[in-house]
Design a protein around this nucleic acid. Structure first.
Lengths: 168, 168
DNA sequence: GCGTTATGGTTGACGCGTCAACCGTGTCTT
DNA sequence: AAGACACGGTTGACGCGTCAACCATAACGC
């Protein structure tokens, strides 16, 4: 039918893909729902806040933050806007570059992340890490390394990040 | 600080979780974006349509469809509504149960999925399957099996599906 | 039969994520 | 110095996903 027919999936590949697909979808919704229920913070909130938490002085350029969480810039802008109205984060002008913006963790934001960290780690343990053998942990690391490297290949902007993650 | 402090992540666990998190987020957005660009169908559309495609007579009860894709019922309802206005799918009344609804693939819908299938498989190969060794494929299958089993434990409704996936 | 509860499905509101367009500022070229 | 271009960030529109409330019908208990 098609001129450039792709090789169909083998049974082995089919199992792996199907499993990954299901796991991906259910796991992320489970983790997100649970985090929201227990802490009022979404996965997205948590990503931003913990990036800010580890930053010096709890402040980060928008650019740096974007590089950290790997989001589209408009998504970041929208989300930071909402987080600002919720009092988790504060926007300040950037001195070095008048185009830029600097975002700072508020006291409430700091408290929220710190309160959420334990829940987050516990959930990740419960639904992923504690279920795996050390070999499976390593396999997961290798697999994601390979996939991230491939993704970076298509998007040069992502390359540095992927290499950083692999310890290059 | 906290009374019930969770065991912190080891370096090994940290690597695995961080890798998975990054892979998950970038891979799914890459696959979804690519599918939409090349075929006009989102991941969600594709899931629904391919479920209908494999169903006898290309028709499925809403309930069965929901069980297949594992969505919230309101999500399914909303999405099917949109797909209906796009002419991909048709809603009919259910004879056996007057509460129920039956959804049928339109001709356009059938054509759209079939046209998309190759792109989908190719993308999954490019960004995941072709990057992995057979052992890594199996590891992925085992990992997702373990995670899905754990998730099913919390949600009895999901149990049957998970067991089905493991071939029990 | 009749009231109660469970089930299949829809609706509306609201926050989220993406795209494309835009704005102001820095940078590069000549 | 002037124009062109790149860059950091914002905005608006729109489709998506979730939650809670709802409606109609079916199934159950008495």
């Amino acid at each position: 039918m098609a001129i450039n027919a792709t090789q169909a999936l083998t049974a082995r590949e089919e199992r792996a893909w199907d499993g990954y697909r299901r796991m991906q979808s259910l796991l992320s919704s489970q983790l997100n729902r649970q985090l929201i229920q227990e802490t009022g913070l979404s996965d997205a909130d948590y990503a931003i806040l913990s990036a800010l938490l580890t930053a010096p002085d709890h402040r980060l350029r928008g650019m740096a933050l974007r590089c950290e969480v790997q989001w589209e810039k408009s998504r970041l802008s929208h989300h930071l806007g909402r987080m600002q109205t919720r009092g988790l984060v504060l926007r300040e002008d950037c001195l070095e570059d008048s185009r830029g913006a600097v975002f700072r963790l508020t006291e409430a934001g700091r408290a929220a992340v710190e309160a959420a960290t334990d829940d987050r780690v516990a959930a990740v343990r419960t639904y992923l890490l504690d279920l795996l053998t050390p070999e499976q942990l390593d396999a997961l690391t290798e697999i994601s390394g390979a996939v991230l490297a491939r993704l970076a290949q298509d998007d040069p902007h992502r390359r540095a990040v992927a290499e950083l993650a692999r310890g290059v």
